[in-house]
Design a protein around this nucleic acid. Structure first.
Lengths: 204, 204
DNA sequence: CCATGTGAATGCGTTCACAGCC
DNA sequence: GGCTGTGAACGCATTCACATGG
């Protein structure tokens, strides 16, 4: 069965809750108070996992966590890279979660060859012109895009040409990408606007 | 009429497109190719604005931009603050968009009094115990939460007690907040997971 | 008995199709 | 003619209500 998109997002959020530990077993009512959705939709969401987790006492947290990871295909290590090694990009080179977690930072790129040579990094660094080769050699699927605003589209085009499948875009621009490439924008002003809208246009 | 939540998000995204300039007039078909949604839903979304913008030649970009801002209540300056003046938090003190744009950074807070005194900043800084007073005095509605993971919930509780209405949370935790407080989480691993799910669970 | 799991009903958002207007 | 604007039809996700199981 195909899982509805909103259900996937809720399951992802639930996974976050589960990872922070807490009780070994959870009922849908408890999840409701933690997460804010109705217990009915929580039960329905979990039922999509088809994993036989529920007892009369509720759900086994560990089993639930595994089932979500497996169903959402988050159960294996995935390779990522970072493009643009300025302040933000180079900070991610040393980010702990990328050294041991489910996302393995495998390469860093920058158009400035000097920067590539001088920066010390636990991750191999390459000049931009090697992007195609490196991304394909290591089967990198997702990239962090940390270049300045005016270079973002150009860098994205290169990533796409190299066969990247997903981009986390930190530049405040709307990237033009083909439909098979997924993009998530991370920009604080967008978040503020979204909050502002929720605060000021809520059903009175 | 109440605007559907998904429509609000699309309008917000469309606003971003409009702000980057481009042509002075846009048809729904052009927006379709830029944004990726169907022209029908675009026309419906814009119709919620009830603003009489469309001509036979399409929409006037400037008028459309204004109408979106007005309808989504983004047409006035809103005050924000930042809690936690470490690497990330202090970087936002000098963020250009918060000095002239629609969000005005009005205060910075940190529990470490020393840090508050030593940091040089274009924005007034205060120790945490003044949070309540300052937030109310300046009518600050939204806060950036940039403290370490293990202090995030505590700091959020203080913000909520001070009457904050929205939080942009940069810590990798699920904040427990009352339903009237809005939260947006900004965490790169969440974004990567979301992309991964889209890439690997797309309808084949 | 309490909590899960699930077909059936509801409700909401998108798509359709056409009327109205420049 | 081309594009917008919108009631109506449609389809999908949430909610309901009950059957099932520890």
């Amino acid at each position: 069965m195909e899982i509805p998109e909103p259900a996937k997002e809720r399951l992802l959020y639930l996974l976050k809750l589960l990872e922070k530990g807490g009780s070994a077993t959870l009922t849908s009512a408890q999840i409701e108070s933690l997460a804010g959705w109705s217990r009915d939709s929580i039960r329905k969401d979990i039922s999509y996992l088809a994993a036989d987790i529920g007892k009369a006492s509720g759900y086994d947290s560990a089993a639930l966590e595994n089932a979500i990871k497996k169903t959402l295909r988050l159960d294996r290590i995935q390779k990522i890279c970072v493009v643009g090694l300025g302040r933000l990009g180079s900070a991610y080179l040393n980010f702990g979660a990328f050294q041991h977690g489910e996302f393995e930072l495998t390469a860093g790129f920058d158009a400035n060859v000097n920067r590539v040579e001088i920066l010390s990094s636990p991750v191999p660094l390459y000049p931009t012109y090697k992007m195609n080769e490196v991304i394909n050699r290591f089967a990198i699927e997702i990239s962090l895009l940390c270049v300045p605003e005016d270079q973002a589209q150009l860098a994205a085009d290169k990533l796409i040409a190299a066969g990247i499948r997903g981009i986390v875009n930190f530049a405040p621009v709307v990237l033009k990408v083909p439909p098979e490439v997924a993009v998530r924008n991370v920009y604080v002003v967008d978040e503020l606007r979204s909050l502002s809208i929720r605060i000021h246009t809520e059903k009175a």
